[in-house]
Design a protein around this nucleic acid. Sequence first.
RNA 1: GGGCCGAUAGCUCAGUCGGUAGAGCAACUGGCUUUUAACCAGUGGGUCGCAGGUUCGAGUCCUGCUCGGCUCACCA
Length: 614
Amino acid sequence: MADQSIQDIIPDNDQTRARHEHLNSLRQLVGNVYPNKFTRSQVVEPGHEDTITAIGARFRAYEPTIAEGDKPTPEEIEKANQELNKVTVRLAGRIAAPPRVMGKAAFVHLSDGAGRLQVYVRKADVKAVNNDTGALIEEEGKGWELFGLLDHGDFIGAEGYLFVTRTGELSVHVQTLQFLAKALLPLPDKMHGINDPELRQRQRYVDLIAGSLKLDREEGELTPREVFERRSAIIRELRGYLEEHGYIEVETPMLTPLATGAAAKPFETYHNALGIPLYARIAPELYLKRLLVGGFEKVYELNRNFRNEGISSRHNPEFTMLEFYWAYADVNQMMDFCEEMIRTTVMKAVGDTKVRFGEHEFAFSQPFRRLSMREAIATSWRLRFQYCQSAVEIVDEWFDDGKRIAFLAQFLKLLGLASLDPVMEQAFIGAERQKYLNQEFAFAWENARTYQELTDSRGQQASAVAEDLLYLFEELAEPTLIQPTFIYDYPKPISPLSKASPTDPTVAERFELFIAGMEWANGFSELNDPAEQFQRFNDQVQQRERGDEEAMVMDEDYIRALSYGMPPAAGIGIGIDRFTMLLTNRQSIRDVILFPHLRPERKREETEDPPTSE
RNA sequence: GGGCCGAUAGCUCAGUCGGUAGAGCAACUGGCUUUUAACCAGUGGGUCGCAGGUUCGAGUCCUGCUCGGCUCACCA
């Protein structure tokens, strides 16, 4: 470690050598090459420093309106410049592209990360600032010399007056130039930016720079910066909506003695002073409900959860969750509230209720569909097996019958959906294909009959039926739920923290929101009977003992809290990362998390070690 | 963890049947005082992810490994 060199980080090649040489020459010319500040003008709004974006927004209206490929007339330019030339600005930014030098004058674009503005530098009248004294270097040609030592990516400050060029672009005619900071590493290609997803995620700073400097942008495509600005807007709007409706934000422990509130494997750590293991929380749920016991009627928490599970395009080990609880409300009121909150957030954060996500477009202005889980399975069964004669004879009542549910789950496992996807192929289905599907169906059906004894006994166990129902739902229905749809009436055994329905004791008052075949929110009427909660925890503990690592553990303090009385309440969790994916049209969670988890980079020295045999 | 695909100049990418490593952008030198993917002329730049193997000869074929992408399983 001690013999690490900066050369391991900044490689020695023609690009970096040129930049180092420029930096050394700049040091001779202006002194301190890492000055402490640059004071910008306040032309647009007194009290606020001018940014490149702000100057562009304020003065771009002076650009003559011209057709594509045309140039404005000298009269139009003269008219704009009469006003613009009176405005002197001091701006700072990053050099957004290699300077275009034409002998004794040059153009270059500056970027503030969001917007860009062109500056014009002329050998005859540009002056450099000495960074040690802060004074202008009066010697002839020094400003132009400084300009010549600038590279794509450097930060500079510039003072000058506004004008429009012969082609009609708003620009700054620079009179004084101050060097602010060097980009010693070369920036990505100005046209293509950076494509390697590994580089983009590992070095998000480069991704953000490249996205803002890239010239070749597709229409409607969000830059990485815009994705994260939208993420921020989504979070801001959700908070605002909840605050408006009387919720208060709370912070509950991230490090907890028990990993509770969800079914997941936790990260474990150790507290030295207490001498106990601690777990990174997998959900704040049980703490938030303790606050309902404590008398808060509306609470929310918007923060990170941690789960020690796989990493994929939809899973990051730490992810952001919004959870909130509403005393005296039930699951139906929560669905209404959730729907309106999402509709409002989409409208405010995206600026439109129409959202495109991959091949789908959603109209959030429309009421969300609502289906019970059984209705959803029955509907999708008819849709997916519409070309199988024997399948359409199955009626909805089958999905209320435990033995038949167990049988259908067995049948579906034997059939396998890989060979049969009528949803995808219904448009192209032919007579031969239909005949084949019917044969496959009949074969799997007969095959499933040989398991009937097993499925009949399975059908008498509530938890097994719950699993089979969920299996049918996930296999058949989930992929068909494209437009926003609430699914309600979840089997009770898979919902250990939710209250049973008053009309059907086998189902929980629980719902999930599906969009584009994926789950986006999970809410329920909260179980507040300590005796029943104790029993449900015990069931979970038994499942855990049977080897289910993700079954919940007993939380005695939570039972004690409920024993002081918790008001009836509804609660919900919404995954913010996935919600951001939906509203920014990103297919990977890594595109909406600034620094997603990746395997650590291996240094070359380490790879030279002989591989350990394992 | 399984399957499929990928890694070549700073960036984006070609590289045919196994026969001296290529382009555009970027960099460097010269020219050019309103350009805009500026232009014109020239120059330099490579551990072909890593380690083995086959071969007279490997970017190319084989094996192992590393990292990444997609996908399946688990999950939000």
